[in-house]
């Protein structure tokens, strides 16, 4: 016991501890190195099915944006970002308040592995300078969500007036499309009645100026699709999205 104490107090103990730390570090990286070697060896000996994740946002039957891991496995992504609502109006046409426009939104698994997906939908107003107008109501941008409570689950904890968070409860298999999470869009005609009036008295005259609150503002719809591997899905979702879920028999539910 005395010798041990003496050893701990000696400079040798410091050196030995440091050497041990280095050994531990090396050992911890061996797993990755070994995995990499195995991975490349397989490539030479047989045809390998690569695990590539990819997801696509689909609007009215057309792919809008996607981000797919390339099968070449060179660490790059096939990435395209398009625009929503681009085909909503004909050239020269203006938005008709109250009219319901088709806006069918769904998700496609464009990768080679099965996945779970969620969608963050944002609705907001921008002024002429592109600044967000928080005093104007997102609910007047009426994106009609569908299949809610069955295929798509609303994460009430994370949703706000501006943001709606939807989780697809089913496993989205490679190459398959989800059911719709929205089918139409209308701008509430009520925005045409919202005004601000200022009164100015000059002599015996009173001038009332009426300004439409929503005149010149831009409504915006933004959708972000997140996808995560199906293997070890509960931990993967917790790690990637910070949300506790339960996956039982392939069906996802929110905790």
């Amino acid at each position: 016991m005395g010798k041990i104490k003496e050893f701990i107090k000696s400079p040798k103990a410091t050196v030995v501890s440091f050497a041990l730390a280095m050994v531990l570090l090396l050992l911890s990286s061996i797993g990755g190195a070994r995995a990499a070697l195995t991975y490349y060896s397989d490539n030479y000996t047989s045809r390998v099915q690569m695990d590539n994740i990819g997801v696509t946002l689909v609007e009215n039957g057309k792919d809008v944006s996607n981000r797919d891991y390339k099968s070449a496995s060179d660490g790059t992504w096939d990435e395209n970002t398009g625009a929503l609502l681009a085909g909503m109006l004909a050239k020269g046409e203006t938005v008709k308040l109250g009219k319901r426009y088709p806006e069918e939104l769904r998700v496609k698994n464009s990768g080679t592995i099965n996945q779970y997906v969620r969608v963050n939908v944002y609705r907001y107003w921008l002024d002429k300078d592109g600044e967000k107008q928080r005093g104007l109501s997102p609910s007047l941008i009426d994106l009609n969500f569908v299949n809610i409570g069955s295929d798509w689950l609303v994460d009430e904890e994370s949703s706000t007036a501006e943001r709606t968070v939807l989780y697809y409860s089913k496993l989205l298999e490679s190459g398959k499309e989800s059911s719709l999470f929205a089918d139409s869009l209308a701008i509430d005609s009520m925005i045409g009645t919202k005004v601000t009036q200022t009164t100015q008295k000059e002599g015996k005259y009173t001038t009332i100026t009426t300004t439409f609150d929503y005149d010149g503002v831009k409504f915006c719809v933004e959708a972000r699709v997140d996808a995560v591997q199906d293997h070890n899905a509960e931990d993967a979702i917790w790690s990637a999205w910070g949300r506790r879920v339960q996956v039982k028999d392939g069906i996802l539910s929110l905790k």
Binding site: I53, M88, T94, Y122, F212, K218, V221, A227, S239
Partner: peptide, 19 residues
């Protein structure tokens, strides 16, 4: 953190003219 994840996003909108 070594889980397979990805994302795709898009946005759009139109300016409203009133009055």
């Amino acid at each position: 953190w070594a889980y397979f994840t990805t994302y795709a996003e898009a946005q759009g909108g139109y300016t409203i003219s009133l009055g």
